[in-house]
């Protein structure tokens, strides 16, 4: 592991489409930290993470991954990062083993290490029985687990997950959460967006709340509760308070 204290260092990041999607945003995540990024739909979470993963160029600002500036050394930065989105990036006509071999090749993992690791990951993720089946017939949960195996095979220092639990059954979700916890315990940094606030509440060390492209609050659950003046409340209440949606739907329900 590098001695650089920050796995992710974002300064003054901006990106606009028709209107600002990310607006002069600063964010720092420490090595080995589990960071959850929350926000309502269209808040700019995915745009932010896509810029970190090198999928979208920023208009302004700097991103540094484990001390590597993504602007000056994009390839070096990418070699430290794994990106998992809610739509698993898997090829229908490759088997999980072939998929892992392909990713290992792209990330320069030596073949012997990659083969061993691929089998371990598939076993870990309960995919061994399907290791030589084409991914085309897999369920959403299985595809997501294959994608996660792909993200882990090159030992990334920073894993970015955009809604990784969407569409997963309880068993698969539990398995993915365990894998992520294990990675964090090994010093890997995880930045994850999720709409399942309970997951963020249980797993994240720090939580960032983003709205209209800006980081409006950040801290541990207790810090956020204090800030929202809702000590002891659930993250859901705190979050809705922070993004100004706490009364959402109540009037309609009352009227009905």
């Amino acid at each position: 592991m590098s001695d650089y204290p920050l796995a992710l260092d974002i300064r003054g990041l901006s990106k606009s489409f028709d209107k600002p999607a990310v607006d002069n945003l600063d964010l720092q995540v420490r090595q080995g930290e589990f960071y959850a990024l929350l926000g309502p739909n269209g808040a700019g979470k995915t745009t932010l993470l896509r810029m970190v993963a090198g999928l979208l160029p920023q208009d302004k600002g700097d991103i540094s991954v484990c001390g590597i500036d993504t602007g000056t050394d994009p390839v070096g930065a990418k070699s430290q990062v794994a990106w998992v989105s809610d739509e698993p990036m898997v090829y229908d006509r490759l088997t999980p083993l072939e998929y892992l071999r392909f990713i290992a090749g792209l990330w320069h993992v030596p073949a012997e290490d990659a083969e061993l690791k691929a089998h371990q990951l598939l076993e870990w993720l309960d995919l061994t029985a399907s290791a030589n089946a084409h991914c085309g017939g897999f369920s959403k949960g299985m595809l997501q687990k294959v994608a996660l195996a792909g993200a882990l095979i090159h030992d990334p220092r920073l894993i970015i997950l955009d809604e990784p639990l969407t569409g997963l059954d309880a068993g698969s979700a539990r398995l993915v959460k365990n894998v992520l916890k294990d990675k964090v315990s090994q010093g890997v940094t995880i930045v994850m967006t999720t709409h399942i606030l309970e997951v963020a509440e249980r797993m994240a060390e720090r939580i960032g709340v983003i709205a209209k492209g800006r980081l409006i609050a950040e801290g541990t659950l207790e810090e956020l509760q204090t800030r929202a003046g809702r000590t002891g409340s659930s993250l859901e209440d705190v979050f809705l308070d922070l993004v100004g949606q706490s009364d959402l739907g109540l009037e309609e329900v009352a009227a009905a």
């Binding site: 090829y91 006509r93 490759l94 088997t95 083993l97 072939e98 071999r101 392909f102 290992a104 090749g105 792209l106 320069h108 030596p110 073949a111 012997e112 990659a114 083969e115 691929a118 399907s130 290791a131 030589n132 089946a133 084409h134 085309g136 017939g137 897999f138």
Partner: peptide, 26 residues
């Protein structure tokens, strides 16, 4: 589900080789 008969062999290859192989396989 379709399946392959044999597990793939992991060989050290360049990124370009991996991409080409993937294209032909698909």
């Amino acid at each position: 589900r379709a399946a392959t008969k044999h597990a793939p062999k992991f060989r050290n290859a360049s990124q370009a080789q991996m991409l080409r192989t993937k294209e032909w396989l698909l």
